[in-house]
Simulated assay, not measured.
Amino acid sequence: MKKIKVLVTDDSIFMRKLISDLLQDHPDIEVIASARNGAEAIEKVKQLSPDVVTLDVEMPVVDGLEALKQIMAHSPVPVIMLSSTTSSGSLNTIMAIENGAVDFVAKPSGAISLDIYKVKEELIEKILLAASSNILSLRRRKKEEKKAQPTKVPYSTIDLPAENRKWRKTIICIGTSTGGPRALQTLLTALPNSLNTPVFIVQHMPKQFTKSLAERLNSLCSFPVTEAAHSEKVKNGTVYIAPGGFHMEVEELGGELYISLNEDSPLKGHRPAVDNLFTSLSKIKNIRKIAVVLTGMGADGAAGIRKLKESGHTVAIAESDQTSIVYGMPNAAVQTGLVDRIENIEDIAEVIQQYTL
C-alpha cells in the first residue's frame, strides 16, 4: 500500500519533532518534510506535493489561516489544522474549515503541547480520513461551476408539502461531523430571514469550538444562532447548537419545548451525539420534524432517523455524496431506507422550505 505523504507545519521545533515522530509510528504514513511557518508550508506544498498537510493555526510570518487560503487557491491539498483551545484559536479554526480545511485537532495544552501524544490516535485517524476525503473533487467542482445531480428519492406519501394536515409546530434538526461548519454555513445562510421554526444542531466538536461555531454562524445569519443552554425555553426562529461535551435533548413541558443538556456517556464515541437529539425529538407528538444529516464520518444519526420515522410525521434529508466532505453519516442514514430526499448541500435549504410553508 502506498504511504500517505504528510507535511508537518508548526513554528515550534519541538512540536514539529513530536508530531513527526508520532506520525512516523504509523505504517501507512510517511512524514516527507516539515515547515516552520505558513510561508514555508506554501512553498513546500508546491515543491513536494504531499497527500496531507498539518497546519498550526497560530504561526509567525504567515499564519495557518492565510497559508491555508493560499494553498487551497494555488495547490489544493487536504489540510488538518492543529489549534489551541483559546477563543481566538478556536474561531480561526472554524474559519479555516470554512476555507477548505478537512478537519482539526485541538492541542491538549496550548501552543507547545508536550503531551501531544494524548491526541495521537485522533490525529492519525483524521490524516487517514483526509487522504481519502472528497475535498479535492469539491474544489474542482466549485471551480468548474458544475452542479452535480444527486440521486433523487421519491417524496414520502405521508409527508408531502401539499398535505392538509395541521401541525402544531415544525422543527428542524441537523446532525453533522467532518466538514460540518462549512456545510452548516451554506445551509443556514440560505434559509429565509423570516425563519419561524426552531433549529437544533449537533456538530461533533469539542468544548469552546462549538461556542466559536455558534458565534461565527450568528455573525453570518439574519436570525439568532446560539450555543444551547440547559433548561432554555425554545424560541421559534432561533438556531441552537449543542455545546461540546454535552448531549443535547429536547423535551416538552406544559406545551412548550425546553432544551436539556447532560453529560451521559458518549454514544458511539460522541458527546454530543446526533442520535440522542433525534431520539428525544421522536418522543414529542403532533409536531412535524425535518431531520437533516450532513457530511461526517461514522453512522451517528442513522438510529435517530429510525426513531423519528417510527414516531411518524418526519421528513428525512441526507446530503449527497457529491457535496459531502466525508459521505459516512449521510450514507448511513440513506442505508436505513427511510430518507425522503438526497440533496446537494446548496439545495437543502430550498427543500426544507418546501416542508415549512
Rank of each mutant, 00 (worst) to 15 (best):
V225G: 00
T226S: 04
E227C: 06
E227L: 06
H230M: 09
E232A: 02
K233G: 04
K233H: 09
K233W: 04
K235T: 07
N236A: 14
N236D: 15
I241F: 06
I241N: 02
I241P: 01
I241Q: 02
A242W: 00
G244H: 01
G245R: 09
M248L: 14
M248C: 09
E249P: 01
E249N: 08
V250M: 07
V250K: 00
V250Y: 02
V250D: 00
L253Y: 11
L253T: 14
E256I: 08
L257F: 07
Y258Q: 08
Y258V: 06
I259Q: 01
D264K: 15
D264I: 10
L267E: 11
L267P: 01
K268F: 07
G269F: 09
R271T: 04
R271K: 15
P272K: 03
L277R: 02
L277M: 11
T279D: 13
L281R: 03
S282R: 08
K283W: 11
I284A: 08
N286D: 15
I287G: 08
I287M: 14
R288E: 12
R288F: 09
K289Q: 11
K289F: 07
I290H: 02
I290Q: 02
A291D: 10
A291G: 13
V292R: 00
V292D: 00
V292F: 02
V293P: 02
V293M: 07
L294V: 09
L294H: 05
L294Y: 06
T295A: 03
G296Y: 01
M297E: 09
G298T: 03
A299D: 14
A299P: 04
G301N: 01
G301W: 00
G301D: 00
A302S: 15
A303W: 03
K307P: 03
E310F: 05
